[in-house]
Design a binder for these strands. Structure first.
Lengths: 119, 119
DNA sequence: AGGAGAAATCGACGTTCGTCGATATCTGTG
DNA sequence: CACAGATATCGACGAACGTCGATTTCTCCT
């Protein structure tokens, strides 16, 4: 053991998207945050978010296969990951499913990583 | 194929931490960003960042084993992941190694997820 | 020099992840 | 109703991940 001790990890109620720089993050809150980042921990999913963030309109899933160079099954897999994480909105129009970035969730996500004026 | 097409993925020069909301993200840039998020895609690493962000001073690695409930080898593994991602600074003092949050990297990381005023 | 203690590394393990082809499900059209 | 086309799901595979005990490396102290 070293000189420095007592780091103090309190146990406030768990809630979504607790900022990483907020004191006393619960193991549960850490799990929630980690799950969120895990959704973005893949190059193809980053590109999907990028396309959705820069495209004014929502995008048909079928139009992502070619630019990403992935099979239909894999694209569906990635879109679902992002959807389950709450980062994407889904809009079924007939045979197609259109995806768009959930701006609110995206904004909240950015707030999780605010560090200024803390510590 | 659907009505919507031509999503356009240009190829600008790769650089660190390109915002996800910036048009034409390269596959390479997406990989860089994904690697960054992968470093945060674990509950224990989130907690480590949390402790480091809220603690005024740098923290000895040995003081993280107990609060995290992990073995020395595993803590070392996680600290190294964060260090390699550039999120942590390392300071060896005698037998101990003290870690602290790299504020600049942390700030840049937050900027990657800025979505306002885009799209 | 020898010992104590912290950290990094190694080897092994079970789990999760990303990928695909194949199949099943659903929707609109003829 | 049968068909075409988009999406979801299944099963399988190799790769990467998280974990630990054991070992090695390093630094300080006596």
């Amino acid at each position: 053991m070293s000189p420095v001790r007592e780091l103090g990890m309190a146990l406030p109620a768990a809630r979504c998207c607790t900022p990483v720089a907020e004191a006393g993050l619960t193991a549960e809150e850490a799990g929630t945050t980690a799950r969120l980042f895990k959704a973005l921990a893949d190059p193809h999913r980053i590109r999907i978010v990028n396309v959705l963030a820069t495209s004014g309109e929502s995008v048909c899933g079928c139009d992502l296969e070619e630019p990403l160079g992935l099979s239909q099954a894999t694209v569906s897999f990635h879109l679902n990951k992002l959807y389950e994480a709450g980062l994407l909105d889904r809009d079924k129009r007939g045979v197609w499913v259109y995806y768009s970035l959930n701006r609110e969730a995206a904004a909240r996500l950015g707030d999780v990583l605010r560090f200024e004026g803390k510590g």
